[in-house]
Amino acid sequence: MIFYLTGGLIVASTAMAITRRHMVHAVIYLLFSFFGTAILFYLLGAPLLAALWVIIYAGAIMVLFLFVVMMIRTDATEEVMFPLNQWLPAAIFGAIYMAVGAAVVLMTPGTEVALPLMAGSPREFALYVFQNHWLSIEIVSLLLLVALVGAMSLGRGKGRDRTEDEA
């Protein structure tokens, strides 16, 4: 029952997020979608992942989005609706992907039996990760560091160039 409520909430807020013209509204609806996903993670028996999802996505990434949306000038009023012949292909592609995916899910053998939920406690999960996959975790953190440094150098260097060009 909670699943149906949350699933409906996620899909509805996602639909709102991709149709709002004002960027801040879209970001807020995206936030609702992430919260719903975190609730689904909790229902699936992954409490650590749910907490991380709220902290990283709903916290950090959304704050980043909001900052950028408020820093740059988004001409919300100018974003007019596409004419039909432009958004119809988009709708068709989305619908085809959904149909193919649904067919794959339905036709895969073995999905008929309902399996018991496997709960992964944070302790088990952490032990598993750092005993078997510590190298991949380090690689991902290195990737984050590189992305951070790249973002910083991109933001600072190009800004200075531009002011020199204009002056």
Binding site: F3, G7, I10, V11, T14, A15, A17, I18, T19, M23, A26, V27, L30, S33, L40, L44, F65, V68, V69, I72, T74, E79, F82, W87, P89, A90, A91, F93, G94, A95, Y97, M98, G101, A102, V105, L106, T111, A114, L115
Partner: peptide, 30 residues
């Protein structure tokens, strides 16, 4: 399992639709 996969498929399809439909870069990133 199928219900969860349907919800995630819907997210994928809606995201794809939004990616093609949005005009501004922030909207595409969303």
């Amino acid at each position: 399992l199928e219900m969860y996969q349907f919800v995630s498929l819907m997210l994928l399809g809606l995201g794809l639709f939004g990616l093609v439909r949005r005009r501004s870069l922030v909207g595409m990133l969303i």
